[in-house]
């Protein structure tokens, strides 16, 4: 069983991804700003080594930019949830917490 607070954190994550991400500040972040000011930002232009499916958090094929960002946000949040959960299960030796609880009930 997940604690109530953890459920609420998950709900907040989904709400942030859906409704707050489209309102993110478009200003450059600290590193981009420094790269711009010191004149080395152009060194990164065209240097991408892979083709990203959802570049810059804009889901392709959606014309409304806010919606495209919100969709990218929720997709990314759910992928992150699944991958991090999966990694946690793998690291702990493939024991999902539910199975562990069941085991506990059987032996206890």
């Amino acid at each position: 069983m997940m604690r109530k607070e953890v459920w609420i954190l998950l709900i907040i994550a989904v709400l942030v991804a859906l409704f707050l991400s489209p309102f993110a500040s478009p200003f450059p972040d600290g590193l981009e700003r420094v790269a711009e000011d010191k004149g080395f930002l152009e060194q990164a232009e065209g240097k991408e080594v892979i083709h990203s499916p959802i570049p810059d958090y804009v889901f392709p094929g959606i014309t409304n930019e806010g919606v495209a960002t919100a969709v990218a946000g929720i997709v990314g949040t759910l992928i992150t949830l699944a991958v991090a959960y999966g990694i946690a299960v793998l690291i702990k030796g493939g024991v999902a917490p539910k199975q562990e609880a069941r085991k506990g009930q059987e032996t206890g």
Binding site: M2, V6, A13, L20
Partner: peptide
């Protein structure tokens, strides 16, 4: 384990903003 997944999801979402 579930908390680790939720924490990652929350940080991902919050990093977008």
């Amino acid at each position: 384990i579930p908390f680790m997944g939720v924490m990652a999801a929350f940080i991902f979402a919050a990093q977008m903003v």
